[in-house]
Design a protein around this nucleic acid. Sequence first.
DNA 1: ACCTGAACACCGTTCAAGT
DNA 2: ACCTGAACACCGTTCAAGT
Lengths: 202, 202
Amino acid sequence: MGKRVYMASEIQLSSEQIVAAAVDILHEGGLDAVSMRSVAGRLGVTPPPVYARIGNKDALLDAIAEHFLADLAPDPERDEAWPDYARRWTQQMRQRLTEAADSRLFLQVKRPTYLEATKPLLNCMRRDGMSTDAAVRACRLLTWATVGFIAMDHSPPAASSRRPSRLAGSDPSGVTSEEIDELFTAHIGYLIDGIERDEGMR
Amino acid sequence: MGKRVYMASEIQLSSEQIVAAAVDILHEGGLDAVSMRSVAGRLGVTPPPVYARIGNKDALLDAIAEHFLADLAPDPERDEAWPDYARRWTQQMRQRLTEAADSRLFLQVKRPTYLEATKPLLNCMRRDGMSTDAAVRACRLLTWATVGFIAMDHSPPAASSRRPSRLAGSDPSGVTSEEIDELFTAHIGYLIDGIERDEGMR
DNA sequence: ACCTGAACACCGTTCAAGT
DNA sequence: ACCTGAACACCGTTCAAGT
């Protein structure tokens, strides 16, 4: 009684450890390599402890997505107007999603996670005089456009021999990564222009 | 010799039959219910014949996506300017993707399939004086925006009690389907306005 | 209390064997 | 020639059993 026989580690798995292991596997073998078994294996453990901590596979994927969206935003400069900050913010968002290397992760993310990530952008818009309603709508448009764009952008495997084209995205045979950069910037630019114009005639 | 003993059906599986069976299963049980085994089973057959015809699971998913994108476009009216036709075309595209009920199908679609679907829009733009380069770029922007939007739009399960809001998409707790319609229309509208403006200063 | 081992019901895919 | 049955190597998930 009271005597300790159990020799295994006293320290329970933390969700941070689990997510870290999952992210390692994601970067090494892609999202399809991330399984409850592979994550457990990397932690030197069988699946049940992972289930006990994280719930199930969907919850694990959510947690991975949240990991990549955490602390997304560098706060706006004091003299930075919202359209400029929005350009910076969407580029930052795009970079984070690209680091995650698989857009499937972000298509089932719950709204509160995106809401958390948009907070600084929302505040910046309100600071510049937008109504809360208009700012929430603008943030949703920009978030959807960014994630949607990345979801469509499964980069072409290799740069084949193609004539250089004058206009980004105009070559039907594919798109280079520079062209994708320009397409993304143009896309976001059109949205910001439109939102700005709507605000102007408010 | 020459004597027929083999009693099974003489008719090989066609890919149309396979896709039709897969689409049935998709509508009944969702994309996760579509497996090589379930499709074979619905056709009263074991998996190998399905593999023989369609190749593998990825090819099946491609074929399903193509099914939903086939004959996408009602051709433009003779007096219909490209911005109006683009609005119609994107709405049509959106409707087809929504019918498919799972956007994952369209995120791995090969470029030629989208290229085929965009053809009438491309021709309409060229008819109205856009250069091929500009038209291809514009079509890609609109296609990416449409598919990306739908990919983000996993409709909320039920209409909970929420205050009505004046601006589409401005409620942080969720979006009603009417609001999503308006957000989509606004998004596409901003893009078309931007493209039109670029063309104007050409 | 926490973990392991093993199982259940599935996958995608392949292949020897039947007719 | 075309199909079936069975297998291989995986999944997500759960649960009795150990310590």
